[in-house]
């Protein structure tokens, strides 16, 4: 696991280390089972085609959880994810890389808590952003030894 990230380590405009996911049809089936989302557009190609889609598509909510992983990987054990939002704008397909990225948009201290705000997004290999979102995390500060 990555080393602990501290509030002082983060600069406005800085990038979150990207997370590249490789969703497969098998993963979408596992997600269907874990999440209870059994919409056939996510695992039955014939059905997806009949709905005018070019292939089965990655669940939006799974992409949202990938963005959650992007954040929890970055903030380390002592960081806390406070808020995360996702807006589903496009489709991701299994067999294609799904690239999760983010950028720090602000940092502030409130009631003794050290907070970071970020824009986050998921994209396809063509560089199109398919999920847009934001996140707020709380980080430990140096010299705050507990």
């Amino acid at each position: 696991m990555a080393k602990q990230l501290y509030y002082e380590d983060v600069d406005e405009g800085g990038d979150i280390p990207p997370l590249v996911k490789h969703p497969t049809p098998r993963q979408l089936v596992m997600w269907a089972g874990a999440s209870g989302d059994y919409h056939e557009i996510h695992y039955n190609k014939e059905f997806a085609l009949s709905r005018g889609l070019p292939d089965i598509i990655v669940h939006g909510q799974l992409a949202c959880c990938f963005l959650g992983q992007l954040i929890t990987d970055w903030i380390g054990e002592e960081g806390v994810l406070k808020k995360l939002s996702c807006s589903y704008r496009g489709m991701n397909f299994p067999g294609e890389d799904l690239i999760c990225q983010g950028k720090v948009t602000g940092k502030y201290v409130e009631d003794g808590g050290h907070y970071i705000e970020c824009n986050i997004w998921a994209g396809n290999p063509q560089g199109e952003k398919t999920v847009l979102g934001t996140a707020v995390v709380m980080l430990p500060a140096r010299g705050q030894g507990q």
């Binding site: 939006g60 909510q61 939002s85």
Partner: peptide
């Protein structure tokens, strides 16, 4: 599915 807003 349009979007998800989550608070923890």
């Amino acid at each position: 599915h349009g979007g998800t807003e989550f608070e923890y």
